[in-house]
C-alpha cells in the first residue's frame, strides 16, 4: 500500500489493473472516487472495502458506458452526447469496448480449444483451432493497428480537443488493407507451427486458412462501416469549425 504523508492510497499496480478495466470516459472520476473511499476507511477495512467497491462499481460503470456508447451514434448532431467532449469520449469508449470484446473472446477461444483438444485430433479440434488463431490474430490486429483507448485530458482547450478528436478519427479511418495483411502474419505463423508440431498428419490446412480469411473479411467489412461513421463525424467537426 503506497501512502503519502496526508492520505493512504491503493497500490499502483492495483489502480492500473482497475484503470484498464474502466472505460476511458469514466476512468478518472471513478478511480478518484474509489481512492477517496479507500482513504476514508480504517486501516483494517481498506483492502476488503476497496475490492468490494471495485466489484460492485465496475460492472455498473461498464454496462452504463456500453449502453451510452450504443445509443450514441457519431456524426449525428442529435446524439445523446451532442457536445464535442462527449463525442470524443464516446469514440474512445467504442475503441475500448472493441478491444476488450476481442481480448475476452480470444481468451474464451483459447479456453475452448484447450478443453476440446483432448484425445484424438478430429474435425472439432480443427474448427476450434481455426477460431482460436483467427480471434487471437483479430485481437492482435485491433490492438496493434488501432491502438488502445485514450483518456482525454480535461486541460485541453476546445481547439486542442477538436484537434485531438480529429487526429483520432483520421488515425482510425486510415486503417487500410495493409494492416489486415500484416495482422494476419502471426496467425499464419501459428497455423504453420500447429501443423508442424501439433499434428503431423493434419490435413485441414486449407480449411483453417479459409476460416482465417473469412474472419479477416468480416473484420475488414466492420471497419469499413465504422469508417463511414467516422467520415460523418469528421464532416460534422469541419462544419462546427467553420461556425466557430
Amino acid at each position: 500500500m503506497s501512502t503519502t504523508a496526508s492520505h493512504p492510497s491503493p497500490p499502483r499496480w492495483m489502480q492500473a489493473a482497475v484503470s484498464s478495466l474502466l472505460p476511458p470516459a469514466a476512468r478518472e472520476p471513478v478511480l478518484g472516487d474509489l481512492e477517496e473511499r479507500f482513504a476514508e476507511r480504517g486501516a483494517h477495512a481498506r483492502w476488503l472495502g476497496y475490492v468490494g467497491d471495485v466489484a460492485t462499481t465496475l460492472p455498473h460503470v461498464v454496462r452504463s458506458q456500453i449502453r451510452r456508447s450504443l445509443t450514441c451514434e457519431l456524426g449525428r448532431g442529435a446524439s445523446v452526447s451532442a457536445n464535442l467532449r462527449g463525442r470524443a469520449e464516446q469514440l474512445q469508449t467504442q475503441i475500448w469496448i472493441r478491444n476488450i470484446v476481442l481480448l475476452f473472446s480470444a481468451v474464451i477461444c483459447i479456453g475452448a480449444f484447450v478443453v476440446n483438444a483432448r484425445g484424438v485430433w478430429s474435425f472439432h479440434e480443427t474448427v476450434t483451432l481455426a477460431m482460436t488463431i483467427g480471434w487471437v490474430g483479430a485481437a492482435w490486429q485491433s490492438c496493434r493497428a488501432l491502438g488502445w483507448s485514450k483518456v482525454i485530458p480535461w486541460s485541453l482547450s476546445p481547439e486542442q480537443l477538436r484537434a485531438f478528436h480529429r487526429r483520432e478519427l483520421i488515425r482510425h479511418m486510415n486503417l487500410g488493407c495493409r494492416a489486415f495483411v500484416y495482422g494476419s502474419v502471426p496467425a499464419i505463423v501459428l497455423i504453420l507451427y500447429a501443423l508442424a508440431v501439433g499434428s503431423p498428419s493434419f490435413r485441414g490446412g486449407p480449411m483453417l486458412l479459409g476460416a482465417i480469411a473469412m474472419q479477416n473479411l468480416v473484420i475488414a467489412q466492420t471497419y469499413r462501416m465504422e469508417r463511414g461513421r467516422y467520415r460523418r463525424e469528421l464532416d460534422l467537426l469541419d462544419r462546427e469549425a467553420d461556425l466557430v
Binding site: T4, L31, P59, V61, R68
Partner: peptide, 29 residues
C-alpha cells in the same frame, strides 16, 4: 457507488443533470 453512477448517467442522458470535471486534487491521487 456503481448504482449511483448508473443513475447519474441516465439522468444526464435525459438532460435532467449536467456534469463537469473539477480541478484535480491531491487527496484523490
Amino acid at each position: 457507488l456503481g448504482a449511483i453512477y448508473v443513475a447519474l448517467d441516465r439522468l444526464e442522458d435525459k438532460g435532467l443533470v449536467s456534469s463537469w470535471l473539477s480541478e484535480p486534487t491531491a487527496a484523490r491521487g
